[in-house]
Design a protein around this nucleic acid. Structure first.
Lengths: 208, 208
DNA sequence: AAACTATTTAATAGATTTATTAAATAACAA
DNA sequence: TTGTTATTTAATAAATCTATTAAATAGTTT
């Protein structure tokens, strides 16, 4: 039972929670300090400025998020099986960090400059991974195993379905009048539904 | 050429643009006034408080957005054809208001209280529309024309695919390294790709 | 034109926010 | 214990933000 907590770490965690919930501008260092249980000046002692604190968190989260999306399964599996695993692991990554997508998109909207932070954080890793996926995809397309589809469309579909299941929850709940409990049930089956949608969307057209 | 502009209207438009881009907290009445080309006090003269101004805009946008999602085609068409039209019109509604979804979701995250504004603005219209859609959907499922799927899953799929094509653009561009011009091309074909995905996802399972 | 109303601005009070500084406290090493 | 360094706090400067008020300007009516 370490009663002594690392205040720098605590501040970082409080800041993360608040930034994720309310964004950069709507979160004050005063609030962060209060949440962390320390004096407001301490936030600046450890992180100098609010912006630096934010950037540290932003970068770290970008790396995590992009990693979760990209880490292409190394196993030697048929493409469609690998894809299914990918959809599932991506869904689960978002499930355990449901606020991340909104956090990124909102911050980019409010301050497009942050795009540079992202670029710098991810490098050309994404392009490589996309290219690798594209090769495997095209190979299966040529075999006639799946219908012709661009890697961009496929990626966009996966990301859209997985992210919106969590990010869209508040709106979706109001629209459908669903309870929190039922929404959890919905989410539980949604992971495999997304897999189904992606796989069915890739099925070759039937002869007419 | 009416050189005389209605300043109240101009303020509303400037505020809308800024709120949509940066959210409630990150937008100041000073900034709104500057954008509108008037004195800051005038913003308060017409709208009393920043919050009232925001609420007016928020409500109006919610009604528009929900309307665009729900207005179920009145024509007598086969379900799948009606659905295709629905997907397309929903896509186009977002296309002409690409910032709306992020605006709602971010504001709800920062201030969950606003959920009441939404509930009040939309009433039980959504539930009714969902229920109507559900009837038609189930009817086609019973006929065996489409695979068993819940109306919630179907709605979530449509909304996810359409919204993320626009809302996710900034992230997607970085990840794929695509140019603005190519992204426009991507969007142009994405509408029908979404239709394809939805329709294919509804195809009955083939006999094994 | 005079009187009245609506619009717009300048000035400012009162909060809040970020960041800095100096002082106080705690932790540690000599 | 004493000197040294690291951590934490209190106080506060400077900037910014919302909202109000009073005065100025423009527009209308009589």
């Amino acid at each position: 039972m370490s009663e002594v907590v690392n205040m720098e770490q605590t501040i970082l965690e409080s800041a993360t929670e608040l930034f994720l919930k309310k964004g950069f501008k709507a979160t004050s260092t005063t609030e962060i300090a209060k949440e962390a249980g320390c004096n407001q000046a301490l936030v600046h002692y450890y992180f100098r400025t609010k912006d630096r604190l934010f950037e540290a968190i932003f970068q770290q989260k970008v790396k995590f998020f992009v990693g979760a999306l990209l880490d292409i399964g190394k196993e030697e599996l048929p493409f469609l099986e690998k894809l299914e695993k990918k959809v599932i692991s991506h869904f689960e990554a978002i499930e355990s960090n449901p606020r991340l997508p909104l956090f990124f998109l909102n911050e980019l909207s409010a301050n497009p400059n942050r795009i540079d932070t992202i670029k710098q954080a991810v490098g050309n890793l994404p392009q490589q991974a996309v290219h690798q996926l594209e090769k495997e995809l095209n190979s299966d397309i040529e075999k006639g195993a799946i219908r012709p589809v661009s890697v961009r469309d496929l990626l966009m579909s996966i990301v859209s379905l997985n992210i919106m299941a969590f990010m869209g929850a508040p709106m979706f709940k109001v629209m459908t009048g669903i309870s929190e409990e039922d929404y959890q049930k919905f989410l539980n089956q949604r992971k495999m539904e997304n897999v189904r949608i992606i796989l069915k969307s890739l099925e070759p057209e039937v002869e007419s």
